[in-house]
């Protein structure tokens, strides 16, 4: 009788984990699911498997998923402009650059938090020294986006830009290997 209750609870937890809006919550539900399933193993007389399931399912894999989510959630974007001397402060506050608005809305739709840093440094210096996910360099209507070749979010961004091209700006993607920087 007891194990039937827990088996039904497992199905309910799996359903909840599939249907939650936020990924982080569904990871937590998956951890609870593992804990309940390890208890069911214990009821069926397999304590060895129960220990392994409890440790790996609800401790190690949960932390691993949470770290993976954390790694890809905040997206650091550097924005440099070749002719920044002609831009006044009001320009940045009032109307953002068109390309930045598009990129930002793309990442917001992907449930990530774009963190945009405006800088007056030369883009080569930023490329060499800073730790970034995406570097946007604008020279009048010529926009160059630098990114890591292994980052799959950038592939999605490139596909999105190709589908909805901007008629005013010329965009160009430049990707480098992971070992190049740092």
């Amino acid at each position: 009788m007891t194990e039937k209750i827990f088996l039904i609870l497992m199905v309910v937890l799996a359903f909840i984990a599939l249907n939650t809006q936020k990924l982080r919550r569904s990871v937590i539900y998956l951890g609870i699911f593992s804990l309940v399933s390890s208890f069911v193993y214990l009821l069926y007389g397999a304590p060895d498997v129960a220990i392994a399931e409890a440790v790996i399912g609800s401790a190690i894999s949960t932390v691993l998923y949470l770290v993976a989510l954390k790694k890809y959630r905040v997206f650091t974007i550097y924005y440099t402009n070749a002719n920044y001397n002609q831009i006044r402060d009001g320009y940045i506050i009032r109307g953002r650059a068109q390309i930045l608005r598009e990129v930002e809305s793309f990442f917001v739709r992907k449930e990530m938090e774009p963190q945009i840093i405006y800088t007056t440094e030369d883009y080569k210096k930023v490329l060499a020294e800073e730790n970034f996910d995406l570097l946007i360099h604008q020279d009048y209507d010529q926009v160059r986006l630098y990114g890591n070749a292994e980052d799959y979010q950038l592939d999605a961004l490139e596909a999105h830009m190709c589908e909805n091209p901007n008629e005013l700006l010329k965009t160009e993607f430049i990707k480098f290997e992971a070992g190049d920087k740092n």
Binding site: P47, D48, I51, A52, V55, I56, I60, V63, L64, V67
Partner: peptide, 21 residues
Amino acid sequence: SPGGGFQGGAILASVFISRYL
């Protein structure tokens, strides 16, 4: 008793992993 090398090793690994937190 129940347990053994693999399970105990996983528990020891969870020490290092929670150390990261």
